[in-house]
Design a binder for these strands. Structure first.
Lengths: 184, 184
DNA sequence: GCGTCCATGTAAATGGTTACATGATTAT
DNA sequence: ATAATCATGTAACCATTTACATGGACGC
């Protein structure tokens, strides 16, 4: 299971609850390369505990729900080292936007532009979030993932911005459509 | 289901068998943004036929297995138009390589470099494949996806090549992963 | 003789999403 | 008032992977 490896890995960086793991994944530099929902995290942590890879301590809080803080065990660290030794699988980029634009010849120009603009906005937000991140206390690994994310997203934005063809922006150059060079 | 939309979409470009859909996905410009295996394609096509979105004709071949050529129906085209109108989901980049390098501080320099080099090779191959693709007869949509792929992969390659830090390319005698039992 | 291409499909297992259930606190 | 944050978990459903089953043609 993917999620188990993720949880184990994050626990190598320090003790944490399921809730915090979710947050770290959603807000940290790994957020754009991995994802997990509560529905997978909590069962994953339970399974990791059953196998002895993590231990947990329950805390009763006032005004807050109880929480269970997990910490990785020695056998958990060994397991994670084993995971890191495996051959990495091929990356998988699953893009609904590119899927749609692949079939964009079935759309009208307005709709294509709409999809492209939404795509641009999505990646501009992603870059904003990454730029605001504080990595002053981070290790080299998280920094690498952060830079990688910025690189990819900036490339996508630049591509989408420079790709102002008639396919997307047909009605823009309306200054001199007739009688340009050919005299039509 | 994702795969049903994929199959429908590809059938708008012309009649095809399940086998050919798999090939088109694996070798075409969409190959890096979507994926489907036989185990999902064949059931998807059967379901699409049951709903009247596609029709099929069986062909008996000599020296080859029989094949079933699917073609999209009018109601299938309408269904695909409906699919294209939906809001696109957020992209999902799932990278084992970045996951590993995120936790690269647990690795030694050799291992990190190994993972990085494998990553580089993977994307160099991807660019090679995209560059060899013949899109002279392709519509704008497939061209867009093709360019998008090239842009992203070239950015990744450039980043990995320029990122020659001591984290990857210096043999530091530093080793903080001593074995606790032996004390080495 | 061995691997790859053609070609379709099923079944078991795994992995993941979504909605549900609960409920006090704090910020807008 | 209303939403968000904190906090854990279950259950029903959906999607996907992997292995299996079958088998001739063709190149090396």
């Amino acid at each position: 299971m993917e999620t188990k490896a993720l949880c184990l890995g994050l626990l190598t960086l320090g003790d944490s609850t399921g809730y915090e793991i979710k947050k770290a994944l959603a807000e940290g530099p790994l957020s754009h390369f991995q994802f997990a929902s509560f529905g997978t995290i909590y069962p994953a942590l339970n399974q990791l505990e059953a196998r002895g890879f993590v231990g947990s301590t329950a805390f009763t809080q006032n005004g807050r729900p109880d929480k269970k803080v997990y910490s990785i065990t020695e056998s958990g660290r060994a397991e994670f080292r084993r995971i890191l030794k495996a051959d990495p699988l091929a990356d998988r980029i699953r893009s609904d936007h590119v899927f749609m634009l692949f079939f964009g010849d079935h759309m009208d120009t307005d709709h294509r532009r709409e999809v492209r603009d939404g795509y641009l906005e999505y990646y501009r937000d992603a870059v904003d979030r990454l730029e605001k991140m504080d990595l002053s206390k981070a290790l080299q690994g998280p920094r690498f993932a952060h830079q990688m994310g910025l690189t990819i997203y900036r490339a996508i934005i630049e591509f989408l911005e420079s790709n102002r063809s008639e396919w997307f922006d047909e009605d823009e150059p309306e200054s001199d459509t007739r009688d340009a060079r050919t005299g039509t």
